[in-house]
Lab assay of single mutants.
Amino acid sequence: MATKAVCVLKGDGPVQGIINFEQKESNGPVKVWGSIKGLTEGLHGFHVHEFGDNTAGCTSAGPHFNPLSRKHGGPKDEERHVGDLGNVTADKDGVADVSIEDSVISLSGDHCIIGRTLVVHEKADDLGKGGNEESTKTGNAGSRLACGVIGIAQ
Rank of each mutant, 00 (worst) to 15 (best):
A2E: 15
C7N: 02
K10L: 09
K10R: 13
G11Y: 01
G13R: 08
V15I: 15
Q16R: 13
Q16W: 14
N20G: 07
E22R: 06
Q23M: 06
Q23V: 01
S26R: 13
S26V: 15
N27V: 13
W33M: 10
G34N: 00
G38E: 01
L39I: 03
T40N: 10
L43H: 07
H44C: 02
F46D: 03
F51G: 15
T55A: 14
C58Y: 08
L68M: 05
S69D: 10
H72Y: 05
G73V: 11
G73S: 06
G73C: 10
K76I: 14
E78T: 12
E78G: 13
E78M: 09
E79Y: 15
R80F: 06
R80L: 05
V82R: 03
G83A: 10
G83H: 10
D84Q: 04
D84A: 04
L85N: 01
L85F: 05
L85Y: 00
L85I: 03
L85S: 04
V88S: 01
V88Y: 03
T89W: 15
T89K: 06
A90Q: 00
A90L: 01
G94V: 05
G94R: 01
A96D: 13
D97N: 14
S99I: 06
S99M: 11
S99H: 08
E101W: 06
S103T: 12
I105G: 02
I105T: 10
S106P: 04
L107W: 02
L107D: 00
D110N: 05
H111E: 10
I113G: 02
I113H: 01
I113Q: 00
I114Y: 02
G115R: 02
G115F: 00
R116L: 08
R116K: 11
T117M: 13
E122H: 07
A124N: 11
D125G: 10
D126S: 07
L127Y: 07
G128C: 15
N132A: 13
N132K: 07
G139P: 05
N140Y: 06
L145T: 14
A146L: 07
A146V: 07
C147H: 08
C147V: 10
V149E: 05
V149Q: 06
I150R: 01
I150A: 00
A153F: 07
